[in-house]
Amino acid sequence: MRKEILDTSTLDSDGLKKIDAYIDNLSGNKEEQLIHVLHHAQQIFGYLPKNLQWYIAKQLDMPSAKVNGVVTFYSLFSEEPRGKYTVSVCMGTACFVKGAEKVLDRILELTDSQKGKMSDDGLFTVQDVRCIGACGLAPVVTINEKVYGNVKINEVDDIIRRYKRGEKHAS
């Protein structure tokens, strides 16, 4: 694990150059601008993996533990990559009894991902969520802002396939 943290070769070098340029342009106390640097880095990389945090710490000449402390403190920073589409499967009681778990399993299978982890193709992050208050539509799945109600297990294939093909509002 430690070795991975120190290995920045897996990071996109153009992205790192952009971060360097951003840091070079900062005036005054650079350590103080850490949150702005992290916002910028997350915009470029989509998330803040540990080796990127280590890189930033090095560039700002501060302990990486401190950078990690800040990253994990604020809810807008993510250490996990997130897919283009966030698929949320409601696990409230109503959805659960209507088979939400099977729906979730099927979605994980189709997207070839694990719960909370981005799929390899970068398209999906699948998660379970607490009751979203649409019990009449159970089971409910949301993909980014779009809500799918009364989702049947055999419809899941079709919905996910459309997102894979890039058709946004598959209904």
Binding site: I35, H36, L38, H39, F73, Y74, S75, L76, F77
Partner: peptide, 11 residues
Amino acid sequence: FDLEIKLGAGA
């Protein structure tokens, strides 16, 4: 006098 914007990050 001059102004600067500082961003929060969700807390």
